[in-house]
Amino acid sequence: MKISQKNKLKNLILEFIIILIAIVFIYPVFLMVINSFKSFREVIIDVIALPEKLNFSNYLYVIDKMNYPQLFLNNLLITAIGIAGIVALSSLAAYIIDRQRNKYTRLAQLFIITPMLIPFQTFMITLLKVMNIIHLSGSRVGLGIQYWGFGIPMATFIYINFMKTIPREIDESAYIDGASTFKTFIYVIFPILKPVTVTVIVLDVMWIWNDFLLPLLMVNSSEKTKTLVLAAYNFVGQYNTQWHYAMTAMVLTVVPSILFFIFLQKYIVKGVVAGSVKG
């Protein structure tokens, strides 16, 4: 009894410390949120002060200006297509690469992962050229598909590293039962990978939903294809930035992805428990 009480107290203190760190950590984000309720005057004079009153007029103005519902749908479509392709193609490739170690797979691994080292800005000009030729630019679906290429390297890398922790006996027993490689992957391996998949989804949803440069190159030309982040940047000018609207627009852009993150976090814990029971 004594020990568990001591532990409880320790945990409580720990939690308190982490919450303190988190508060410091989140402070700039908090500033973004409170400034989204202020007038231009309040933002410029003092970013740190609380808003004089809780005023939603910025939000009404920005939602209208951004054409929020349409752009929200665009974001949803692009992100969904991107994620589906990244998860499907990377997990499959990683499975083969990890399970069949030979010359070919080592080469494939190097080939898939190396692009993580190439800075995006160095091939922007030619990228748009290539995408124009194969007609992946200027459309939401096309942009979603492009994210497969940009997301696969990191996702495959993560999958390969976690794949190692899954004992080979599991797929071998499936083979003995007569399942094909693909079936083994779909019905045996992929479910075990659920926690990793959730991690990949979390990281990639956050990235695609809030990405700026690639959408700017590919889908900025029409309201029908534009993303939320692009619209948010319309409030930012060189000699005159409407900070109060810019912050509001950013809050409106980022919040859906954060809600999604918190929702998935709960799921990760469940996924791990489910996996360990099965294993």
Partner: peptide, 9 residues
């Protein structure tokens, strides 16, 4: 690819 094609304005 088809979507890409038709989607291009």
């Amino acid at each position: 690819l088809l979507f890409g094609l038709t989607g291009t304005i």
